[in-house]
Amino acid sequence: MTDLERRYRRLLALYPRDHRERTGEEMLAVLVADAGDRSRPGWRETANLLWAAARLHLRRLVAADGGVEPGDVLAVVSLLGPVALLAGAAGSVHELAWWVRAGAVGQLPWSEQVPDLPVWLVWFAVAVAACSGGGAPRRPAPGWGWSVSCCSRCSARPPTSGSGRVPAGCSSAWSPRRH
């Protein structure tokens, strides 16, 4: 098996199981034939395969024929988890940038500078487990990721705007906690 083929197989592993079993080998033949002299998939080809895999998973999720594979649901949830968290992380980064601009980042406790760090670390481990292809840690990994995320959210303290941590000269109305 060539290196190119191995890389394509890794990408095709992201497809829904039924699609992979039915057309995986056929797709691989087309991809290899279309690759020409390349030794690795181009970024456009990679993006196209990832997008197509996501669309096929989504199509199966919303299909009304009842043929939904639990493994496929897990795969989509695993994919959406980090995306949702990254979207949420944008707010934290913005907040951190605000404290830096205010020259008060030293006043902010480390745990509040990056409040979602533990959750990000868990999801990073989930991503590594998912990409490694190992059987044992792969299946329960998204479950752990979501459990930690939910616990983190449930135990999060309510916003504390105007609590004294806002730097001098800044109106509490512009506290980043209110974003």
């Binding site: 087309v30 395969l49 197509a52 669309r55 096929l56 199509r59």
Partner: peptide, 12 residues
């Protein structure tokens, strides 16, 4: 067209 697009379309 790329393989991903063709096989997604063929699936549908």
């Amino acid at each position: 067209l790329r393989a991903g697009t063709v096989y997604t379309a063929l699936d549908r």
